[in-house]
């Protein structure tokens, strides 16, 4: 009997990065800008995506990937806007990965899209490690998660282009300091853009819409 050593050299995150890069090239080829929208359960990801569809749907062709343990509920909310929606039921997964997104891209009419909004699984931890092929990474937190939520999850803020502190209209009721959340995000990542939003205060949503519009300019 003999024993030998075999080199394997397979890295899980590197393999995901390679696939994500392929997704990115595919999207680039169609001129699509993709947004990976991350945040905890109940932070407001679905609502902010709905508002983006409402306010930008007239000018851009938008598609959505809804990722969740059971994604149909959010997907049905998006379908009301008559946009192409793929529900990714991740089953046991706590995050979307590049392979799941590749499978969704195979089902989307890429020829007819300008913007792809990808709603990740509600979680501030696992999605930080996985690229999907997006152009912009967005993290949403709400004041009801407590004003130490940002400093407790530094990795996701390090890797994002935009941080949204949501539901600021209830800051006082939940005893959270929204400005502390903003400054924590900027301390962790000085180049991140930070917005304070609330669906109840209409104009606060403008910054979110402007961020998407500014991201589109590369193709205009």
């Amino acid at each position: 009997m003999c024993e030998i050593e075999v080199e394997v050299g397979h890295d899980v995150l590197e393999a995901n990065e390679e696939l994500a890069l392929r997704n990115h090239h595919l999207l680039n080829g169609f001129g699509i800008i993709a947004f990976n929208i991350m945040g905890a359960i109940g932070s407001g990801k679905t609502t902010l995506i709905e508002l983006a569809i409402e306010m930008l749907g007239g000018r851009y062709r938008i598609g959505v990937i809804a990722g969740d343990i059971v994604a149909d509920i959010d997907a049905n909310r998006f379908k009301r806007y008559d946009v192409p929606v793929i529900a990714m039921n991740t089953g046991k997964e706590c995050h979307l990965d590049a392979l799941l997104v590749k499978n969704a891209l195979d089902q989307l009419p890429l020829d007819d899209l300008d913007i792809l909004l990808i709603e990740n699984v509600g979680n501030l931890i696992c999605p930080a490690d996985y690229s999907l092929g997006e152009s912009k990474r967005v993290v949403i937190v709400s004041v009801s998660e407590g004003d130490d939520i940002v400093e407790k999850h530094p990795m996701i803020f390090k890797t994002c282009d935009l941080a949204i502190v949501n539901k600021v209209d209830i800051s006082e009721a939940v005893g959270a300091d929204a400005d502390k959340m903003v400054s924590d995000a900027l301390r962790i990542n000085p180049s991140i853009k930070v917005l304070k939003t609330s669906k109840k205060v209409g104009e606060s949503i403008d910054g979110w819409i402007e961020f998407i519009e500014a991201s589109m300019n590369v193709y205009e």
Partner: peptide, 29 residues
């Protein structure tokens, strides 16, 4: 938390060159 800064100059976003591996290096069979 905030310890991810460069210990030399305090830059909060230095390039991470290792620490993100989830790698099977080799197997013995």
């Amino acid at each position: 938390t905030f310890n991810l800064a460069c210990p030399e100059c305090g830059n909060p976003v230095p390039n991470i060159i290792s620490g993100k591996e989830i790698n099977v290096r080799n197997i013995k069979i």
